[in-house]
Nucleic acid binder design. Structure first.
Lengths: 341, 341
DNA sequence: CTGAAAGCGCTTACAG
DNA sequence: CTGAAAGCGCTTACAG
């Protein structure tokens, strides 16, 4: 076992000072060609690599980005991480991932922990509980300490910082509008409870599309799911009792569950029931019939978030001008809505 | 903007030495009740939190685990991360995630970077390219430096270290054996190229099951996919030309693609074609028909890997006794194989 | 009971 | 051209 070699050891071996070794390795012109070569050769031989923790302490930057997300076992968040990771890597940053598990406390603990020197900035999406409590003190605190934060997807107006979102409202509006245009009359909505920011926005988009087309809003056709784990029964109930001719679901899971429910009730998808989901992921692609969805490009969102954060970290001036970047969406047409185009 | 406060600043404010502050905050009995309280009150007021980077440098441990995986946009790997994260968090560790993108070079670069002090140990799964090249010098090097490594899923016998796997061979054997027992005669195999370790093992399990049941191996029924992105065509070709009555696929994607292909060819699943997949993920659950799979519990694998790593990190004695932990699997019966039980 | 010193591994302004 | 010193933020053995 050969431990990693340090400047000190090299200095000792070569009988020079630590400063000389350090400067030689950084190609300082202060040092004579001769010693420089000698040191570099030796360092190479022993595979010297500077200790990044020591550098972090010295430079007061870690070249590490902290990511806080509600869950990782969720295709959308995984794609965002992937998007962040690739940009981060390109620019020499590493990525620490913490999961809040939709819990406020875990979100707070994780942020506080990472804020104690481990990272240079945050990219995060709020936990459900945080959105419910509307308590953002942990985020304000971090920002006040001068650590930049970029929020994505589940954001809040209560915090001033850079943000990356899609236009949830508009995307939902357009999807529902398309359904209406294609003569669907009785469009059901399967959504989340209102405190989930993106769920609320998508619900609003649905409502607006109906209103703008003079369709009366029927509360019976609107299902707000509290507990995602147990969404099968209420969805079956909605479809069997209301018999909508189309369903707009605010995520993939609700969409595919609607399809499964319809099958069970012997309702043919798409002939008797069209379905549009949200978030273009694996489920929509591989479901049968495959599901038309509003794409929500997690890779792009992650890329953008990473770019914004790194730019802020590396820009000299501390301009307080925060941006909100809106990633475009579009409808990915698949088998569940054959008549749309 | 109020920057984070340091021991030095507290010492200055309170007109005591840094040592006194440090000891007070760590409740050292060396310090008088009086000063201790004064310091603690002040620290609390200013929300003092020790700088973790400084602690890392001092203690020569970072309380951080490095994870290197081929991809994150892959349900199985996401579940493993989740499993690691939860145990890590419980025990006060953070998690840095790096993606190799199935590339040898990226795997090497990421490992070298993290090995320079950023983490205490690795949990990793090999990239395809690394498995193809059989070049593991980067891993040996890290281990030689005294940094523990736990490998999972895609492991290699060429490296001595702790490992977490499932019995891929046996699981495949059992699945195929079950098919045979249920009177399926013409069982197709959709697998990866042989250099992917787990693909090879599952292929071997398939072959062994046939042999043990005196079924002649028909190479025509075996499809080895090189490029996962373009698996649709060869799979369609296999099914249409060979007309198997059952398919054993070494992952979810191949399984669901087989089902889609069968539908296109007007072959009824499961009546005319039974399908068993591998890795119990979202696709299998939500496909129609849902797919019977060999479960491969990523959460458990992640939990175990994290436990093994942390135990090694925190155990006093440097025992060189490496363990390979085998996580049990079982067949999750779904609609694609109605006759199995 | 308190504090100066040394040290973790590095960089850099300064002295010689 | 080389090296001693100070410093990043912390801890701890030791002196007083």
């Amino acid at each position: 076992m050969k431990r990693k070699v340090t400047l000190k050891q090299i200095a000792k071996e070569l009988d020079v000072s630590i400063s000389t070794v350090s400067k030689s390795l950084r190609d300082s012109p202060e040092i004579s060609e001769d010693t420089r070569q000698k040191v570099q050769a030796f360092a190479k031989l022993y595979n010297y690599k500077p200790n990044l923790i020591a550098l972090s302490l010295k430079n007061k930057k870690t070249k590490t980005i902290g990511i806080i997300i509600p869950e990782i076992v969720h295709h959308f968040f995984a794609t965002v991480i992937s998007g962040i990771e690739h940009i981060a890597n390109e620019r020499g940053y590493n990525v620490i991932v913490c999961l809040s598990d939709e819990s406020f406390d875990k979100e707070v603990i994780n942020m506080e922990m990472l804020a104690n020197g481990s990272i240079d900035g945050f990219i995060m999406s709020l936990s459900k509980e945080t959105q419910l409590k509307k308590d953002f003190h942990h985020i304000t605190e971090v920002i006040n300490q001068g650590m930049p934060v970029v929020m994505f997807d589940r954001v809040t107006n209560d915090i001033l910082c850079d943000k990356v979102i899609i236009d949830d409202n508009l995307a939902a509006y357009n999807a529902v509008h398309d359904l209406i245009n294609n003569d669907y009359k009785k469009i059901g909505l399967i959504t989340t409870v209102d405190y989930v920011s993106v769920g609320k926005l998508r619900t609003d988009g649905y409502l607006k599309a109906l209103k703008n087309n003079d369709i009366k809003i029927d509360e019976q056709l609107i299902l707000k799911i509290e507990d995602i784990e147990n969404c099968t029964e209420p969805i079956e109930e909605l479809i069997s009792s209301q018999r909508p001719d189309a369903i707009f679901a605010v995520n993939e899971l609700f969409a595919v569950t609607a399809i499964k429910a319809a099958k069970k009730l012997n309702i043919k998808v798409p002939d008797e029931l069209a379905v549009i989901g949200f978030t273009d992921g694996i489920i929509s692609t591989y479901s049968s019939p495959s599901i038309t969805t509003v794409s929500q490009n997690g890779i792009k969102m992650g890329n953008k978030a990473a770019q914004m954060l790194i730019e802020r970290l590396e820009s000299e001036d501390e301009e307080e001008h925060y941006k909100t970047e809106v990633i475009e969406t579009h409808l990915v047409l698949r088998e569940s809505t054959p008549t749309l185009k």
